[in-house]
Design a protein around this nucleic acid. Structure first.
Lengths: 262, 262
DNA sequence: GAGTGGTCTAGACCACTGT
DNA sequence: CAGTGGTCTAGACCACTCC
């Protein structure tokens, strides 16, 4: 190995993958590692930084450097959409039982804390194009934050947009205090006489912005998954767009494509 | 701003997002930036490192630090599966015209360089579970690397697995020199009398391993998207598993879910 | 208060790129 | 060759955590 810091990072990586260092274990202090590898402290920090960006180590100021626990991912499937559609016409008592997030995570309502903020915003050029409406058309913006009740940071932040004109016939849909709405968006649309035909989801992974790092409490090296859900009704009209930011290391997405028979 | 390096990174970030520094522009040398911000060179490097991990800057040893060009993503849709299935029974001349990768990227066959390696491997515990066969069952492993003809590093690496017993009836399927096979895997399966019922794809984003960084030529801060495609035939049997590693910054995935009518 | 990581300095020397 | 980033040192002082 040519470099000192790579010598350190490959050695520590082997210790982790071999199990010599287990998940949650604390590493020796940086001064101690410097003595052990016969290098200066900044060089140790450089080597540790490599493993931090690989998601193998996590530093905690004042406490130490720890082998990171690989988080168990939350699975999100496209079966949820049909499941939600089937529920949209159920009775309120039936719809109250559970929501799509609980459906995905297997958690009950009590484990989740939910926060909704409603606002009216003019459509940006990009959203206007997606809705096929003039730029500046008023939209209902709804920002949702979902987190586990025993954690501080949300595990997802989502922004949903609906043309204001579309939802105005039902004033209840403008009230954020009625969230969480039993049966979700598809039931809300049902109250407007709207039936969905299909849902198009696009997504990408990219490094987080500083705001996202803070908001989601992301460790170094974890990227975010950006998911845009576009809901299209039976008249081929885009009725809702929802942008979700998910922590890349805790998210698994599963899609089933059913094929036509020969 | 409390820290010097954050002062530098936020200032440079503003210059980039405001357009004052355009894509491809070279930054002043680190010594020059140190003078300008009245800090030491390592502090400049720390600030630049932040933007590097956000994918905004790219360092090139001996040349300078540049504002990174945001790559145009390759889109991969689930419509390709039905498209491939429809083609699987076409004549060879029809199938020769184009492949699924070209379908996604919009490139012609001449722009793409394709490399296939076949091997026989025993099933790992994990693959055996996915195929529902005993551990150690022999599998045909096929490793594909696809790259643009004018670039050195592949833009994806994929590993495909098929139970060896399944493909042996057609010896041509064991010959890597017949790649690229016109019509792809679904046509290969068709020669065995196998029809696919559905395809389940799961994917996740995570930081790359050192090997992946090297193989895909990934810049700092870019994560990889891991996609596992499981093909299930009309008898509910898993017939192929394909693992693809994609550069997160160049990949966009689009899935359409068609909903049943009320 | 002891121990940890976080920020920062002011250099030295090496490796790579271009002319 | 000059100019660039890459590696590394040997410290100083600050901020956080836990006892």
């Amino acid at each position: 190995m040519a470099n000192q810091y790579e010598r350190i990072s490959t050695d520590l990586r082997h210790q982790i993958t071999s199990g010599e260092l287990a998940e949650g274990d604390r590493l020796p202090a940086e001064t101690e590692l410097a003595k052990r590898y016969k290098v200066s402290v900044p060089t140790v920090r450089q080597g540790v930084g490599v493993l931090q960006s690989e998601g193998l180590l996590e530093k905690q100021h004042g406490r130490g450097t720890f082998v990171r626990r690989q988080p168990t991912p939350v699975t999100r499937t496209n079966l949820r959409h049909q499941w939600e559609k089937d529920r949209a016409r159920e009775s309120e008592s039936e719809r109250l039982k559970t929501g799509a997030t609980e459906h995905d995570t297997g958690l009950t309502v009590n484990d989740l804390v939910f926060d909704a903020k409603y606002d009216r915003v003019p459509a940006s050029a990009e959203l206007a194009a997606a809705f096929d409406v003039p730029e500046g058309t008023m939209l209902l913006e709804r920002i949702y934050r979902t987190r586990h009740s025993d954690e501080l940071t949300p595990f997802n932040v989502s922004r949903s947009y609906l043309p204001l004109e579309l939802v105005e016939p039902n004033p209840d849909l403008l009230r954020e205090d009625l969230e969480p709405w039993p049966g979700g968006t598809q039931n809300q649309l049902f109250t407007l006489g709207i039936e969905l035909d299909r849902i198009v989801e696009t997504f990408r992974a990219r490094p987080p912005t500083p705001e996202e790092t803070e908001e989601l409490g992301l460790p170094v090296g974890v990227s975010v998954v950006i998911l845009r859900k576009t809901s299209i009704d039976t008249t081929d009209r885009v009725v809702e767009i929802s942008d979700v930011v998910l922590p890349g290391d805790r998210t698994e997405i599963v899609y089933t494509t059913k094929l036509d028979r020969w």
